[in-house]
Each structure stands twice: as C-alpha cells, then as structure tokens.
C-alpha cells in the first residue's frame, strides 16, 4: 500500500509536516503544495529533516506553487523533485491513496 501524502502548510507556521513525516511509512511519497513548499527550500531550518526524510520516502514539490511564491527551482533541496499539476495527477494515480494533511 503506497500512499501519496500532501502537505499544504508552511512547517514554520503549522506542524502538519512533522505529523506527516513521523507517521508516513517507508516507500510512501510526499508532495509539498501551497505554503508547504517552504519546507523544500535549501538553507532553511527544515533542510536536515527533509534530507533525512528523503532516505525513506520520495519527496516532491509543486512547481507552480514555488513560482507563485517567487521561489526559483534552483532553491529546492537536492533530492526533492519539482512537478507540475500534470505530475501531481500522475502521482495521485500511481499511488494507492492520497492523504491530505490539512
């Protein structure tokens, strides 16, 4: 059972990312959308935690939401893949369930 988790809150505002990472099982995937994209940025306080998470699960960030917040793709931590909405749809289709950490 592979689950695609979506997190839409900044980890510097809410703890939904921490909840997700502590409960997500190995082999699942996480897509950061909306304000969740702030967790994907290089040099930020969450970087070590994201790099650790990348060892057990696939990490993605929604490109249009990065762009909407003025963040260039080269600011994204290595190991986090940038996808567009079509990529979001593909991820939802290729995983067994989609779980939104609202």
């Amino acid at each position: 059972m592979s689950i695609l988790h979506t997190v839409n809150k900044s980890p510097y505002e809410k703890n939904s990312l921490d909840s997700c990472l502590s409960l997500a099982s190995e082999g699942s995937a996480l897509l950061l959308i909306e304000d969740g994209i702030y967790a994907a940025l290089k040099g930020a306080a969450k970087e070590p935690q994201m790099k650790e998470a990348a060892q057990k699960m696939k990490l993605y960030v929604l490109g249009p939401d990065l762009k909407a917040r003025g963040m260039a793709e080269d600011r994204v931590i290595e190991g986090i893949e940038v996808v567009d909405y079509a990529g979001f749809v593909d991820l939802a289709a290729t995983h067994d369930k989609v779980n939104a950490w609202l």
Binding site: P64, D84, Y85, A86
Partner: peptide, 19 residues
Amino acid sequence: HQAADSAYQFTKAALEKGH
C-alpha cells in the same frame, strides 16, 4: 484559501490527461 484554486487546477489537469 488557495484550496479552491488548487482543486480546480488538479481537476483540469486530470481531465486534460484523459482521466
């Protein structure tokens, strides 16, 4: 909230992919 926009963009992308 952006949720209304995100939902629309996802729905549109899914339809355009033939889902």
